[in-house]
Computed example of a mutant assay.
Amino acid sequence: MPWISNILASAIVLAAQADDASMKEQIIPGESLDSRISACGVQVGRNEIAVLRPFIETSEQLSGHFSLAVKKQSASGTSASAQSGDFNGGKLGGTVAVDRPAKLSVEMTVTATDGKPLCRLAKEIDLGEPEIRT
């Protein structure tokens, strides 16, 4: 029954791709401050250079302002980076890239156009570990 081996081979490939995708990013969850926000936080790439991307998941189209500030301490020294801007339709922009290993202080705020807080995040994380430790 060659079709069974084809199905098994496809399942193995799909499982490997799913594992590979989950290994590329981790999520630092933020605190949702509004019932329209189902999730928020920062995605962190797991490559040698970690790219931090802020995100929100909303139940409706929202607009407002976000800010992301990252302070890094590593063998190469200490640095600070920040991104901020307006967003429309619930899609945040901006990224911050840092080298590994490093210890980070991450702060993010997201507010609606009317100034109502939507999400906040303030965490210390260690990018020297296989899993992010908060």
Rank of each mutant, 00 (worst) to 15 (best):
W3C: 08
S5R: 15
N6M: 11
I7W: 08
L8C: 09
A9M: 07
A9G: 08
A11K: 15
I12V: 14
V13H: 12
V13G: 04
V13W: 10
L14H: 11
L14R: 15
A15Q: 11
Q17R: 11
A18P: 01
D19G: 11
S22C: 08
M23Q: 15
M23E: 12
E31W: 00
S32R: 13
D34E: 07
S35N: 10
R36C: 06
C40Y: 00
G41W: 05
V44E: 02
A50Q: 04
T58E: 09
G64I: 01
H65T: 13
H65V: 07
F66D: 01
V70A: 02
A75Q: 08
A75E: 09
T78S: 07
A80C: 05
A80F: 05
A80D: 06
S81V: 01
S81Q: 13
S81M: 06
A82H: 05
Q83R: 10
S84G: 06
S84K: 14
G85S: 09
F87H: 05
G90W: 06
G90I: 05
K91Y: 11
K91H: 13
G94H: 04
A97P: 02
R100A: 01
P101A: 04
L104N: 01
M108S: 00
M108R: 00
M108D: 01
T111S: 15
T111R: 14
T111M: 04
K116W: 05
L127M: 10
L127W: 04
L127N: 03
E129R: 15
T134D: 06
